[in-house]
Design a protein around this nucleic acid. Structure first.
Lengths: 237, 237
DNA sequence: TTACAACTCCCCAGATCTGGGGAGGAACGG
DNA sequence: CCGTTCCTCCCCAGATCTGGGGAGTTGTAA
C-alpha cells in the first residue's frame, strides 16, 4: 500500500464527521491525480449517503433524470463481486448513452472504476474512482493503484459502518430452514402446488411458511417477500 | 502490499485448480510465519469448500462435533463487516469454551483473525489466519499484515468466484425502462392495481410489461421474474 | 415445567393473477 | 419504407393466491 493511502486511512480513523471524511476524500483524490472519488452507501431501505467529490449539481441532475434506472455501472455493481471497469460495460442502450453523454458534459471523467462492497444484512456500498485522460493513463492508474482501491473501499466502508452504528441497528432477519426452502422454491418459479410437492408437504403447510416468512420480512405480499429474501441473500436461485 | 503477497496473488491468478491454490496457500502461510491460513466459502446450500492448511482430522472433528453451532468466530463473521480478532470474542459460553479447548489441542493457533467477505446473491466466505505465539507476536503480525489480509481475502474470493463460474456466461438481459419500473413496483410489494396507479398506466398496460419482462427473463411466473430481476441487479427495491 | 419456535395440516370466500386472444401509435435503425 | 421495440389499452374465463379463522406435535431453553 502506498504511503498516500496509508496516511489517508489513518486520517480516516480519526475523522469524526462526514464533513471531515469528505475533506480527506478530496485531498486523496488530488494526491492520486483523479478526477473524482466517491464512496456511496445504499441502505436496504433505500437511504443513500456518501462522501465524495461529485458536486451537488451532478448529484441533483442524476437524481432528477432518474439515471439510476439506466446506469450500467450500478447494475453491474449489484450483480458482481469484481471491481467494475466502466470501459468494460455496455453503454449502447439509449438510457445509458444519455447518461454517458451527460456525465461527459459534467466532466465526471473519461474513465472510471467502481468497487462494490457488501456488509451484513444486505448492506451495500460502492467506491468509485474516475480519471480524465487517455486510455494509457487509465491503464497506468489501474496498474499502480487498482488493488489499493479495493482495500480503500473496504476500509472506508468499515469506517462508515462505525460512524453509522450510533443509530439503530437493524435486527437480523432469520428465516427457518423450511421458510427458506419455501421462498426459494417460489423464487425459482414453482407454483405453490409444485413447491409443496417438491418439499413433500401440503400446500397448507407451505402457506404457513410463506406467511410466517412474509411477517418476518415485513412484506406486503409473497412477491415482495421473495424479492426481499433474494436481496438479503436469504434464498438463492 | 508486501512482495510476498504480490507474488502470491500473481500466482493465484495463474492457478487452474483447487489443488494448486492449496499449495500456494501453504507456501504463503509459511512465508508469513503463520500457524494456519484458510479460505473458506460457505455456500448457501450448506456446501463448504476451501483452500487452506487445516488438516482433515480437524475438519472432520469440527463437523462431527457440530462446532459451527457454537463457534463465536463464525457468528461474528456472519454479523460483522470488520475483520474479527479472535481475542475480542466471548469464549465463555459452554460450547465455545469446548471448541476453544479442542482447537488448542489440535494446535490450531493461539491467536487468529477472520475476515468475512460477501459477494452477490448471498455468497459468503471468510479468510482465517492463525498464529502460535505470545500476545506481542500477534500484535506485531497484525500491524505488519492486517491490511494485507483484507486485500488477500478479497482477491482470493475473486479468484474463487472465477473458478466457480466456469465458462457459463449468461447472455445479458436488457429490460425496457417500463419493464424495470413494473417489476420494481412489484418487488416493493405493490399489487398490480397499486403499481399501475403509481406508474399512471392501466393494469392492462402493466400486464403487458410484466409479461414481456417475464419472457425476457425466461421466468415461469411473475414472482420468478421479480426474483431473477433482483438477483441480476436489474431492479432495485 | 412452561413458553416459544418450527414443523405439520385444515376450512371458506373473495381478490388477484394468468393464458390466450385482440388492438393502436411513435421512434429508430437498416 | 419496413421491421422491431417500446409504449399504450382492451376482453373472457379459469387458476391461483390471500385474509381470516381453526387445529396438533416436537424439541429446546429458561
Amino acid at each position: 500500500m502506498s504511503r498516500t493511502l496509508e496516511n489517508f486511512t489513518d486520517a480516516l480513523n480519526g475523522a469524526s464527521s462526514v464533513g471531515q471524511v469528505e475533506r480527506q476524500v478530496t485531498d486523496l483524490r488530488d494526491r492520486l491525480g483523479l478526477q473524482h472519488l466517491l464512496y456511496h452507501w445504499v441502505s436496504f431501505e433505500g437511504e443513500m449517503f456518501g462522501a465524495g467529490t461529485y458536486d451537488d449539481a451532478w448529484r441533483d441532475h442524476y437524481i432528477s433524470e432518474d439515471f439510476a434506472r439506466y446506469d450500467p455501472v450500478l447494475q453491474a455493481a449489484y450483480s458482481q463481486f469484481h471491481p467494475i471497469d466502466w470501459s468494460s460495460l455496455d453503454w449502447s442502450p439509449k438510457g445509458a448513452r444519455r447518461l454517458y453523454a451527460h456525465a461527459r458534459d459534467a466532466r465526471i471523467g473519461s474513465h472510471g472504476a467502481t468497487i462494490p462492497i457488501r456488509g451484513p444484512n444486505g448492506q451495500f456500498a460502492h467506491l468509485t474512482a474516475t480519471l480524465e485522460g487517455e486510455d494509457q493513463d487509465w491503464e497506468d492508474f489501474k496498474n499502480a493503484h487498482g488493488r489499493d482501491l479495493i482495500l480503500l473501499a473496504h476500509l472506508v466502508n468499515q469506517r462508515a459502518i462505525e460512524m453509522q452504528q450510533g443509530s439503530v441497528e437493524e435486527p437480523r432477519i432469520l428465516l427457518s430452514p423450511r421458510e427458506i426452502d419455501s421462498l426459494g422454491s417460489l423464487a425459482r418459479g414453482y407454483s405453490r402446488a409444485q413447491a409443496a410437492e417438491s418439499l413433500s408437504i401440503s400446500e397448507h403447510t407451505l402457506r404457513v411458511y410463506i406467511e410466517s416468512a412474509r411477517a418476518k420480512l415485513s412484506a406486503s405480499n409473497t412477491t415482495h417477500a421473495v424479492a426481499r429474501a433474494v436481496k438479503l441473500g436469504l434464498v438463492s436461485i
